[in-house]
Amino acid sequence: MRIAPKTIESDLREALHTSPPVDAWPDPVTRVTAGVTRRRRQRFLAATASAALVAGVAVAGTGLITHRPAPTTAVAGAEPAAAPQVLRRSPREDRQACRLDDVDSAQWIVRSALWGLSTGLAVRPHNSERCTLSGVPQLSGVNAATGALEPVAAAGAGPLDSSVARQFPATIDPGEAARVEIRGVKCAAGQTPRSYRDLVLTAGAEKISLPASRRLDGVCGADVSQWFVEPPMLYAALNATLRAPAVLRRGEEFTYTVRVDNVYARDYSLSPCPVYVLGIEATEIGSWQRVDCTASGIDGHDSVTFTLQGRIPPDIEPGPHKLSWMAVTGAGEAVVADMGTSGTAVIVTR
């Protein structure tokens, strides 16, 4: 069958006439301009969304900080107070007598802070169990004038210094120190003074040599105490840290802080407010003061910071020193700052 050329031409013209028109490509300038505008609009929207998100986070964070309780409460100020009574270990019952046959010499302890053992003689028996030293040892020494070893006469000058806590007799645990105090007595008018070296204490059959640095010079006898133990203080379940300028001048007044941390979950009462004293090594450099605290206690795992004033004595020797700070709570328990380092290191200048 033949199809007429005219028919084919007529069909083609009709198809082209009824087909939808094809969109033409825009010119290159129009295409570039449209793309740039579209990308700018997308970047603007993205930046706006990011800024809104950051602002929302910042507002939320600020709200959290504002409503969270501060971990440390700052208080300041103090007023004079009487020296407190510190709770100490209760007296112990007597035990078997301590053996002194393996003790060659006594120690001379020098107090280095406001807490701890007082300066004086100490004997540490090597017993493996708790034991008791009782009675009054006899003191003898080499007379510096004659070179003879002789007893030192008892002077009977009266009671010992009451500033040191003592329990009689000395019932001690292994490694704990039994103490004894020796006090030389000055001569009255018309008496002849004597001096002694190489001092020895005799307790029963045992003799204990004193350090060579211990002498009695120009005395008319000496008082020797009974054996006693210096009971340790009872400490509060609190940690304290002192912060002060690293360099201080003699005679200078300065501000320092003491942060007291309650490391346990239970609250610790501060009613009445604690009393405290500041010292350099073992020497108090001010009177006892009562902190003017506004908080009635320290919550569990919380802390309080005291902002306080101190003054360096004008006659202290320049050089390295340690500030020591001790407080006593209303319950009679001691709080010591920086006990592990025996105080806070400072340098004192002229």
Rank of each mutant, 00 (worst) to 15 (best):
T341M: 05
A236T: 03
N143V: 04
T202P: 05
P5T: 10
R179L: 03
A345D: 10
A240C: 07
A82I: 04
A205P: 00
A157N: 08
T33F: 15
A237Q: 15
A327C: 08
R215I: 10
H321T: 00
H67W: 12
T294Q: 12
M339E: 15
A148T: 10
K186Q: 12
P21E: 14
G120I: 00
S19C: 02
A240H: 12
T73E: 12
R183C: 03
L133E: 02
S195A: 07
A295I: 08
R95K: 15
T305C: 08
R243Q: 15
L308H: 09
S10T: 07
S287C: 06
S271L: 13
G56Y: 06
L121Y: 01
Q107T: 08
S19E: 06
C98F: 05
T255H: 13
A337F: 10
P26E: 10
P274G: 01
V136A: 03
G135N: 07
A337Y: 07
S162D: 14
V277D: 04
P320F: 01
T48D: 03
D173V: 02
V22R: 14
A246I: 06
R68M: 13
A24N: 01
I285V: 13
S324C: 11
F228N: 03
E150M: 10
V142R: 15
L45D: 12
P21W: 03
S90C: 00
A49Y: 01
S112A: 11
G175L: 03
A246H: 12
G120R: 00
A34Q: 11
N143P: 01
P21R: 14
H301W: 09
T241D: 11
A178M: 02
H321R: 04
A244I: 11
S19Y: 01
G279V: 09
S195E: 05
E176Y: 01
S162K: 05
G156H: 02
L149K: 15
Q167T: 08
V36F: 14
V142M: 15
D27T: 13
P20L: 11
E252Y: 04
C293L: 09
P137F: 05
P26C: 01
P159W: 07
P71I: 07
R249F: 00
A244D: 08
L248C: 03
V180K: 05
S225E: 02
A155H: 10
A246M: 07
T7F: 15
L308V: 06
A49V: 10
P91A: 05
L117D: 07
S209L: 05
C293K: 04
R290F: 06
V335W: 03
L100P: 06
V22T: 13
L87K: 11
R214A: 04
I298M: 05
G190P: 06
D217R: 06
Q107N: 13
L308P: 02
D223Q: 08
A244R: 08
G286V: 06
I316Y: 08
S112F: 01
A155R: 06
I280N: 07
D198Q: 13
Y256S: 06
E150T: 10
A83T: 09
G156M: 05
E252R: 04
R39L: 09
P313W: 06
A240G: 09
A265N: 14
V54W: 12
E9N: 08
V54R: 05
E181Q: 10
C273Q: 01
P174G: 04
I285G: 04
D302G: 11
V164L: 06
C273T: 01
Q289C: 00
L53T: 12
A106K: 00
G218M: 00
R31P: 00
V86S: 15
A240M: 13
P174W: 06
E129W: 01
